[in-house]
Nucleic acid binder design. Sequence first.
DNA 1: CCCAACTTGGAATGACTATTCCAAGATAGC
DNA 2: GCTATCTTGGAATAGTCATTCCAAGTTGGG
Lengths: 195, 195
Amino acid sequence: MPDVKHFDPDAVLGQVECVFWQRGTTSVPIADVVATTGLSRSSLYATFGGKHELYVQALRRYVEWRSQPVFDRLAADERGLPALADFFDRLIQVRCEGEHARWGCMVSNAHAGAEGGDPQVRRVLDLHQQRLRTAMRTALDVAGAKAQVRAGLDLQATAELLALVAYGVNLRSRAGADPAELRASVSAVLGCLQS
Amino acid sequence: MPDVKHFDPDAVLGQVECVFWQRGTTSVPIADVVATTGLSRSSLYATFGGKHELYVQALRRYVEWRSQPVFDRLAADERGLPALADFFDRLIQVRCEGEHARWGCMVSNAHAGAEGGDPQVRRVLDLHQQRLRTAMRTALDVAGAKAQVRAGLDLQATAELLALVAYGVNLRSRAGADPAELRASVSAVLGCLQS
DNA sequence: CCCAACTTGGAATGACTATTCCAAGATAGC
DNA sequence: GCTATCTTGGAATAGTCATTCCAAGTTGGG
């Protein structure tokens, strides 16, 4: 005989994700979350728990819904080096224009903020890093098999390097970096890998 | 006939810089700054203004005292590619061990936080980025003149790339990245540049 | 149609925050 | 040593924050 929820928890979590993504966690009062989602404090606390648990759930949603599909696309792209170029092109585009322009990456932002101190958050950050590196590595393996990259390259270290570059793009885009310059930097590193 | 200050403002600013560097700005109550510096609220406000102005001054101090000397050393190092390797070696070491281990870079941290929204902060961030890129470019020019790097390299884009890698190192080090992996990534990019 | 179980909105709470203010203390020139 | 002027410490203020609580409303099975 329980009453049913009058809203869609996952849709709400998506809105919360956007707020925290753009503005971080400490600078968003719970009142703003209430205003954004349209539901009341009671419903928020009853459904998601406190502010911190809400943030963690939003961060997890970001990794699963925003990052993972992009990583999957990269890993599934059989073109090798062009797949990597495509990944970075899309990344820079998302970071610099459109709905989420200049928001950076929610995971990158969490690295720098006080959120990173929390063990739960740290685990999500590590998961994200591992998945990104794995996707990079997969694409690099394809590129290696196609002899698109120089022989004798340390593919694992290169995968990690490309992940670092992605983090750099995320960071600088938030501060208003010129997308053309970012693209040139990516071209520089991908060009260097080329055989 | 004025009384003289009973403390050294610059030494105090150094302490404040460390607190904000490690913990960010929003998660540090002014009470903690008072406790760290040992002086009173009155003296803090009278000398530096409010919390935000204090943060900006600390950030500026960080750029001038922490970043700039490192950039200068890089730009003055006439070895070319080894100078860049040395820069990254020292960077990773500072970020992963010693007094400031896992603090990241105060400027990188500011990129991701809510601080980046402030125009004054943004200007410091851009200044830092420009100086870092310039130092990288200088070292790359030397490397180019010595024919240490591949011909036909876009040196400006490569300088920007290396800056992005540095930001990536700063970010990941804060989340506990393995210094050996970071070093391998740096080796990968520097190895690629080599002729 | 009724009722138990849940949701909801909004007010209330209590802790914490940045900032200001004032009386007391310290200084350096005269 | 005296005094004008600044510094200092701590209390006071006003605002904001996350969280809790309760009365009223809503649901769906019997």
